[in-house]
Each structure stands twice: as C-alpha cells, then as structure tokens.
C-alpha cells in the first residue's frame, strides 16, 4: 500500500549556520512519482534524507501515510537507493539483496529475488560480487535491493548519477515500470531535467541553496514512456518549462547572494 508524504514548514540549517532547506511545505501524492530538480548543492538530497529519517529537520514536520518517519522506519516500509550504490563488497548481488530483506525482517524467497534480478537485467550475475560489475550494473543491483522489500515509499537519490548516458537511458526506460507496478510512492532526486520528465508524474523545481520551491510542474505524458518520446514536442515543452523555472530560481537567488 502506498503512502502520501506531507512536509509542513520543513527546514534544515546545519551546524555552522549553513541553511540547506528554507521553510517548505509540500505533499507527495500516494502512488505518484515526483522528481525534485535543482542545481547541484541546492539541498534536494538533504530534503530526501529528512524524509528518509536519516537527517533530523531543524524545524517543521513530516508525515508518511499519517505517521512520523520514525514509524515508517520502524516498520521498514521505505527504501532508499543512494547516489552511490552502497553495495557491500564482500557480498554477491543476491546476498546484497538478502541483506535488505534481513534488515527489514522480511522473509527471503529465492524466487522473488531471482525475479527481481531478472527485472533489473542482472540475470546471470546473481552470484557476482560488486567489484566485478560495471557502474550501471551496480546501480541496478542497488535498485533491486531497494525494491526487494516492497516498500510503500521509494526514495531515489540520483540513482543514475554514476552511469554512462546509454545505460542511463536504458535504466530510465526499464525501471519505472517496476516501481509503478508495485504502487509505491516514489520520490526521485536528480539534476537531469530530461530524466525527471521521463520518469515522473510531477516535477518540483527547487532554487539554489537554501532550497525552496520555484515551480510545481505536472507531467501528463502517457506511460509507458520511452526514449523516442523525448524527441516529441510535448516532452520538449515540459523540458523547456523546467529549464525556465530553474533559470528563474537562479535569477532570484543570485542577486540576493551578491548583496
């Protein structure tokens, strides 16, 4: 069962006074994929980490399906795919997936794991250790691990950041179908505009640090989407809209920084 995420007046200021996220209120609808887009270092990962319960907000509150994040964590109902795949080097792909199931206290079913490995295109690599996989394959293994616990909330922090353009396109084509089929609420952090348009139902454009919402854009393109769609005018129009919002955010923030 998917869960809506509601952030109310959420903000984060690190020790030393660096304000990463300005007071922000936003709702992530249940079962939707929402992309957080913004320039590097704007605070999108911090926002995601606060939702994941890995970072404490300085002010404001978060609820996931009406519960505080701690409750979702306690029930292991969320999964995070980090920018770095964070696979344990001494475990094979299968064992890395099993680790997530162990940590989440879920039963380990070989058939389910095999199916997941096939879904992410790692058939034949189940017993391979991370050092023997390419960057894209590691990323897929990390996504398979994140999906293995069938979470209500899936958080993806630039999951394709470390892979080449071709693999990135292939992952963007293949993976949304998997998490959509599972009905999870998905929040995706990325600085790639086309990736955000390709993968999400909604894009929230954030300003340079401290992050605040510049524009909330609905992506009402039909699914499933493929790389061919990226060449269509309606796709390009949304890309342009996101770029314009990013430029607007920059223009508003930079004069303030100069002062």
């Amino acid at each position: 069962m998917s869960a809506a995420v509601i952030c109310t007046d959420l903000s984060k200021t690190f020790k030393g006074g660096v304000e990463a996220v300005a007071p922000t209120s936003l709702t992530f609808a249940a079962g939707q994929t929402t992309a957080l887009v913004g320039p590097s270092g704007c605070g999108k990962s911090t926002l995601l980490r606060m939702i994941a319960g890995l970072e404490q907000p300085s002010a404001g509150q978060i609820t996931i399906g009406g519960q505080p994040p701690e409750e979702t964590l306690r029930k292991a109902n969320l999964s995070v795919a980090f920018q770095d795949p964070s696979l344990l080097p001494w475990r094979s792909v299968r064992k890395n997936i099993e680790l997530a199931l162990d940590l989440a206290r879920r039963p380990k079913k070989d058939d389910d794991i095999d199916q997941l490995i096939r879904l992410v295109g790692l058939d034949g690599f189940a017993e391979t250790r991370p050092a023997e996989l390419s960057g894209g394959m590691r990323q897929r293994a990390a996504i398979a691990r994140a999906l293995s616990t069938k979470p209500d909330l899936l958080l993806l922090d630039e999951p394709f950041g470390a892979v080449d353009e071709l693999t990135r396109q292939q992952l963007a084509n293949d993976l949304p179908g998997i998490w959509e089929a599972r009905g999870a609420t998905t929040i995706l952090v990325t600085h790639s505009v086309s990736e955000a348009v390709m993968l999400s139902d909604r894009i929230i454009v954030l300003s340079p640090r401290p992050a605040r919402i510049v524009e909330d854009i609905a992506v009402d393109l039909p699914r499933p989407r493929s790389s061919d769609q990226a060449r269509r005018p309606e796709f390009g129009a949304i890309v342009d809209q996101v770029f314009a919002a990013l430029a607007h955010g920059m223009a508003e923030t930079l004069p303030k920084a100069a002062q």
Binding site: A52, L73, L103
Partner: peptide, 21 residues
C-alpha cells in the same frame, strides 16, 4: 562509507544491526 550505515538506518535498524551486518 557512510552510505552503508545509511542503508542500515533506512531500514529502521540501529547500531547493533550495523555492527553485525
């Protein structure tokens, strides 16, 4: 890497699980 510990924490597990796993 902090990512390994974040992984453990993201499943709601504490220091003992991080130590063991």
């Amino acid at each position: 890497p902090t990512g390994w510990l974040d992984l453990v924490r993201s499943y709601g597990r504490g220091r003992m699980a991080a130590l063991i796993h």
